[in-house]
Amino acid sequence: MPDLVTIDRINKWHGSLHALRDVSLTLAPHQRLVVCGPSGSGKSTLLRCINGLEAHDSGQVIVDGIRLGTDRRTTCSVRREVGMVFQSFNLFPHMTVLENCMLAPVWVRKTARLEAEELARNYLERVHLGAHAAKYPSQLSGGEQQRVAIARALCMAPKIMLFDEPTSALDPEMINEVLEIIMGLADGGMTMVCVTHEMAFARRVADRIVFMDRGEIIEQGTPAQMFDAPRSDRLKAFLSSILTGSA
């Protein structure tokens, strides 16, 4: 099967900061990629280049056979097939949970309202929030809001899901309810890229882990290779800092 995402030597500058340096990456269907690394290493930037929220300055990004960065319309058609979940949820506060989930299917996919509502209720049920459809985001906890955000993305039936530190803004007791949903998706065969600091989750869900530092991919491999036999000094240092930090 052809790769869903092909990233070929992309570079990205934020002003004078070289945010991504010659980063190359491929993602096959059903693959679950976890990107980790210290803060400011370019993980989120890489993720945002996959759906064109940030434009890369050189190299190329091909998603689902479409080359990004040519014009606005192709970017839009890529975004339809790529779901994204943000660190800060970014639910639309003036819409109910149900309306949040129906907006894109109705207006972008042109799904009939009744059908879109059924779809939305279905996905809300899957993230265990079926009873909260009529509430506004401000009435929900952080964990619940993030699960709505996941349902909202799933309603577009995306081919790929991008998670940008989905649990970093959550209170500790709410982290697991969100990770369980993501693991459920992974077990169902969803292709995904996840930026996270949750190493136990990474080990459990990833079939490949990419370690980034200062805009470069330093090392990649299976969770076992990465956690049990890290090769580079930078990954070793990162792992030891994380393990002492969480122990």
Binding site: N51, L53, C76, S77, R79, R80, V82, G83, M84, F86, S88, N90, L91, F92, P93, H94, L103, A104, W107, V108, A149, R152, A153, M156
Partner: peptide, 29 residues
Amino acid sequence: PSGQQEAALALGLPRWLIIWKVTGPQALR
């Protein structure tokens, strides 16, 4: 907040629709 625009863009919404449905109504308040 810019996150509102980004979330809408990530869903594949075109710009006019984002203003009409997402950022506009919030700004009206």
